[in-house]
Simulated scan of single mutants.
Amino acid sequence: MKITKILNNNAVIVMDGQQQEQIAIGAGVGFEKRKNDIVNINKIEKLFVLKENEKLQQLLLRIPEEHFILSKEIITYAEKQLDTKLNDHILLALTDHISFAIEREKQGIHLKNKLLQEIKILYKPEFEIGLWALQHIKEKNQVEMPIDEAAFIALHIHTMKIKGGDLHETVRQTAIVRDMVETIKDYLQIKMEEDEISYERLITHLRFALSRANQYEVHSMDEEMLQMIKRKFNVSFRCALEVSKKLSRAHGIELPEEELGYITLHIERLRHY
C-alpha cells in the first residue's frame, strides 16, 4: 500500500490494491514518511475506508496529535480491563470528546454531568476506566479534569462495547432512572446517601426494570406475596405507584404490578435504613 497523504505520525491515507483509499492508523506509521512511500503493514493497527470516515480524517487534521494518542491509549486500556473488543467507531467518538474536553478545561469551562451518580453505579467498570483516563490525561498532558469527565468517558466506552447499545439511548435510560429516584425522594421527603448499598441496589433494580419493560418481559411475583407487600408496606407501594404513573406520563413506559412489588421492597429498605 502506498501513502497518498500523511495526516500525522500515527495516521496516513493509503491506496490499497483495489485502488481504494483508506486511513491507516498505527504507532509511527507516518513517521518520517512521504507521499508515495510504501507503508509498513506491520505498523498498521486499524484501517478505515476513507469515503466512510471523512469525519475521522477531518478530526485527525484538526486536533493535536497527543490527544489522538491519549484516546488510543485509553481505548487499549479499556479493552484490556473489560476483556472485550470495542467498536472501531470509538476512536472517532472518544478522540473528538477528549480533545474538546481538554480544550474546554484549559479555558476554565467545566461541564457538570447530571447523571454522575447513576453512571458510577450502573456502569461501574467503565467508570473506573474513566477515572484511570483522567489520571492518564493529567500525567501525559498536565491537565486536571473533573470527575464528571470520568462519567462522560464511561458512557462512550459502555456504548462502544459489542453489545453496549446506542449512546443517546444509554443517556436516555440513565436519565429516566435518575427521574425515578427523584420521584421517590420527593414523595417520601427523604435524603438518600448515594454511597449506601441500598441506594446502589435501588438504582440497579430500576435500570433492569426499565430494560424488562422495554423488552416486554415480566419480573414474576407470586400473587399472594404481592398482596402481602401492598398491605404491609403500603406507603412504599404507593410511592412505587407514583413512580409508575410519572414514568407512564413522561415516557409512555408501563410497569406491571409485579415489578412494582419488587420496587416497593427496595423503597421500604431505603425508608428504614
Rank of each mutant, 00 (worst) to 15 (best):
I267A: 11
T159P: 00
L116S: 11
I121T: 04
E254D: 08
N234E: 06
E223L: 08
D195M: 09
K230F: 11
N113C: 12
P125T: 07
I102A: 03
K112T: 11
H89D: 08
E242Q: 12
E242H: 01
H251K: 11
L210I: 13
A150F: 03
K120I: 12
Y273T: 10
K106C: 12
T264W: 05
A78G: 03
K72H: 04
I153C: 14
H110T: 03
I13D: 00
F237C: 01
I44P: 06
Q107F: 02
E182K: 13
E105N: 10
L260W: 02
F237G: 10
A175G: 14
C239F: 13
E139A: 15
P64C: 09
A11T: 04
I41Y: 03
K232E: 02
L210P: 14
L59G: 02
S211Q: 07
V177K: 04
E66W: 06
H158P: 00
L188H: 03
H67M: 06
E126L: 02
K51L: 07
K46Y: 12
L255M: 10
E254T: 10
I109R: 06
N9I: 06
Q227R: 14
K245D: 07
Y199D: 00
E52R: 10
I229S: 07
N234V: 08
A101S: 15
N40G: 07
I41R: 15
L134M: 07
S248R: 13
D148L: 03
H97F: 13
I121F: 02
E259V: 10
